[in-house]
Write a protein that binds this DNA or RNA. Structure first.
Length: 151
DNA sequence: GCCAACGTTGGC
DNA sequence: GCCAACGTTGGC
């Protein structure tokens, strides 16, 4: 079963928002980068996803969610009022996808970015590569195990 | 708030 | 198809 990591600004959507919506579904929409979108398309129901908090006070991996609905056309691309509106997208030819996710667990404590960077074996993870801006990325089983060790 | 790194756009 | 200009991301 593939595993993933997604970045989010906690002011927009945090692990606590998922926890507060336990048993419910939260759409993962607004992805507007082709490489990230291609990974979204590969997600399958049941895949586990690490939630990474970016651009905030406590940067790092905060918890785990799971995919509960695989990719469908992101409705926000058709909504002129939305900041995620894409005028070049049409319902016949949608450019962007969303998936639905649901809460699994919070990490007992935040796995901080500097801790992540200090662990060997994560060189291949796009998250720790310099200048990387990819917001949806695959995580290998090995990387997953390293990240969740001692947590 | 700064700024390096990156992706996208659009003129040519 | 090149590439400069621009906008955005995201750590610091």
């Amino acid at each position: 079963m593939p595993k993933w990591l997604v970045k989010t600004e906690p002011s927009e959507c945090s692990i606590d928002d998922f926890a507060d919506a336990t048993g419910q579904t939260i759409p993962w929409d607004g992805v507007r980068n082709y490489q990230a979108r291609n990974f979204l398309r590969q997600m399958r129901v049941g895949d586990q996803v690490l939630i990474y908090h970016s651009s905030c006070k406590h940067i790092g991996i905060a918890g785990i969610v799971k995919v509960v609905e695989s990719a469908y056309a992101d409705p926000k691309q058709f909504d002129p009022e939305s900041p995620y509106y894409d005028p070049k997208s049409t319902p016949d030819q949608p450019r962007w996808q969303a998936v639905d996710m649901a809460f699994v667990s919070k990490l007992p404590r935040l796995l901080a970015l500097d801790t992540i960077k200090s662990r060997p074996g994560l060189d291949g993870l796009p998250l720790v590569k310099k200048g990387n801006r990819l917001s949806v990325m695959p995580v290998t089983e090995d990387q997953w195990a390293i990240l969740l060790a001692d947590n």
